[in-house]
Amino acid sequence: MYAALDIGGTKIAGALIDDAGVILTRAELPTPARESVSRLTGTVDAVIDRLAAHPAWGTVRGMGIASAGPVDTAHGTVSPVNIPAWRAFPLVECVRAHPMLFDGIDPVLIGDAVAVAAAEQWRGAAQGVANALCMVVSTGVGGGYVLNGKLHPGPSGNAGHVGHISVAMDGPPCACGARGCVESYASGTAIARHAVQAGWVPREGEAATAAAVAAAARVGDARALAAYDRSARALAAAIAGSATLLEIEVAVIGGGVAQAGDVLFTPLRRHLHSFAVLDFARDVTVRPAALARDAGLVGAAAAARVRMTEQGSVYVSG
């Protein structure tokens, strides 16, 4: 059994997950993102407390933590953009100090988008694929790579930040400080903003969200379709760039924006043919993610499982 945490700007979730990647029990609390360090760490502790109350806690032999980034896996610290109180915060040390954590369990830190890649490789759409890019397209755009059959988080754990690849030198400014980033075109926020700027208006009582734009696109609204086409073109450029640099075979797309289905995937595949033109890159395929809400948790458990395998040992508590 593995314990897993998934820490984001809106929720802190935890789970106990078995060696087949199946979630046995789950706990979740809202993230007090704008509150103090002590309030945040108290929420993490409360989620672990809920997991520790389950009878299977005694069989936990590893623990993984997926966190919004940037992360520094070498030092066990996190600096999530949307959690201001945590800057170079020693999250691994904090979790390791929890009184219910058994001796011998050393938590593994992984970025949240890299965790999605780990989950999709273990149980999802990237199973059996040697080289893949797994992307999360939601409020932001993140990603993680599987290369030569192994997760590739990079030295600091931040490899795969495809949302901050520039696809237009003179493009709009991005929150990261650069211009023309994929995220500034392809995120759910960008899709809704572009549709509104083009004159699209949500139905009365409906918020201007990417999901609302997708609903309008399904019934043929030209402005909504154009917003998704713009997003798909930026994503296609990033995928083609990854295929050209790393010879990825598959790109897995998940996150809230991917729930638009063919509204996103049809133009994405069309644009990909225009960008991935070299012989060794043109066969890259696009797949929707198989895991949804719990991908971060499953990926965190996968990271812990890999560490246990590499160590060649099995720790059983109790």
Rank of each mutant, 00 (worst) to 15 (best):
G8E: 08
G255K: 14
R218H: 02
H273P: 12
G312R: 09
R218G: 00
N158V: 08
A232C: 02
H273N: 08
A217I: 00
A33L: 05
H75W: 03
I248W: 09
L264H: 06
G163T: 08
H161F: 13
A27T: 09
N82E: 14
G14F: 01
R39G: 11
Y315M: 13
L29A: 12
L272G: 01
L246F: 05
P80R: 09
F102D: 10
A281W: 09
Q259M: 13
E249D: 12
G64F: 01
I165S: 10
G104W: 14
Q121K: 11
Q259W: 09
D18E: 05
K150S: 15
P99R: 07
V263I: 02
Q127H: 05
A113L: 07
V114C: 13
A74S: 12
G76V: 03
F275T: 11
G104M: 13
V22H: 03
Y145L: 12
V108I: 12
V162D: 06
G299H: 02
H271T: 11
G69Q: 05
R293Q: 14
R269T: 15
G254L: 07
V201M: 10
G104R: 15
D279T: 12
V263K: 00
R96W: 09
A215V: 03
T10P: 06
R39D: 12
R179T: 15
G261T: 14
G69L: 04
D6T: 08
G140D: 01
